[in-house]
Design a protein around this nucleic acid. Structure first.
Length: 260
DNA sequence: ATGCCTTGTCGCACAAGA
């Protein structure tokens, strides 16, 4: 089963690009972030024509996540538990049947958190704590679990072309990185880092200042695998060529193959 | 030091992103 994640920066603006990529990459499951659409306005039909069941958890203007599956969706759980007053659409879980058992996939759009020292940064850290609480519950089920999405965390210096440029940024704060490491410590495997231990592995290039042409990138889109999912990992990759397409997202797709 | 681009919005610029 091929599972992918992509922050598309607006489904309306990225519709043709997303469809082109889907027909080439052919993932069984894809998690989108930043759909920037309410559920009713998400263009489901062109994706359904490619064979996907479409599930969305959106809001007006900002944020919003989706999960598309060519194997149907058995159960769907929107919203990250832990704060009933949180209205930002950033989390969606789906149970999907593989050839050899059920897998749970979560589409995650973790808060950016900038600027540091504001309520936005404390919201990010609180959100990461809620995520840890949630996945602890799911880990106890001892089933394959994939946490796929835009984490807005640069885990290590290796994950940025110019780490020094990010020291004042929420994506690279010790607290953000520590919370990400805490996830790993629960038993999750960072699929891409496991497959590619080298430097220069990025998933985001800013639209500004020629970041793409200078390969001034960062790795912030991650696929974290529970032990039962990691045991079945056979391949992983980053579709970086999409960043050079017309009307690109500033993020590129990340994918894994699982023998399930 | 700031903007650099891009998207969405009851627009005639602005917020938010990272």
């Amino acid at each position: 089963m091929k599972i992918a994640t992509w922050n598309i920066n607006g489904v309306k603006a990225r519709l043709d690009t997303a469809l082109t990529w889907l027909q080439s990459a052919k993932p069984d499951v894809v998690c989108f972030q930043e759909i920037k659409s309410v559920d009713a306005n998400f263009p489901k039909e062109p994706f359904e024509e490619l064979g996907y069941t479409v599930a969305t958890h959106g809001q007006k203007s900002f944020n919003g996540v989706a999960i598309l599956s060519r194997r149907g969706i058995d159960d769907l759980r929107p919203r990250l538990p832990g704060d009933n007053d949180d209205e930002q659409a950033r989390y969606l879980e789906a149970d999907i049947a593989g050839d050899d058992g059920i897998i749970t996939v979560a589409s995650i759009y973790l808060p950016n958190g900038n600027p540091i020292g504001t309520e936005k940064f404390s919201y990010k850290l609180a959100w990461m704590q809620r995520l840890e609480t949630r996945v602890r519950e799911r880990l106890s089920l001892e089933m394959p679990l994939v946490l796929a999405g835009d984490y807005n965390v640069i885990p290590e210096p290796l994950d940025a072309k110019t780490p020094k440029a990010w020291v004042e940024d929420a994506l690279y704060q010790p607290e953000s990185r520590s919370a990400f490491r805490a996830l790993s410590a629960l038993g999750f495997t960072d699929a891409v880092r496991t497959c590619y231990p080298n430097d220069g592995v990025y998933t985001f290039w800013d639209y500004q200042a020629g970041a793409w042409n200078k390969n001034n990138g960062i790795r912030i889109d991650h696929m974290m695998l529970s032990p039962q999912a990691a045991d079945r990992l056979t391949a992983s990759g980053i579709d970086r060529e999409t960043r050079g397409w017309e009307k690109p997202s500033d993020h590129v797709p990340v994918w894994i193959e699982l023998s399930i």
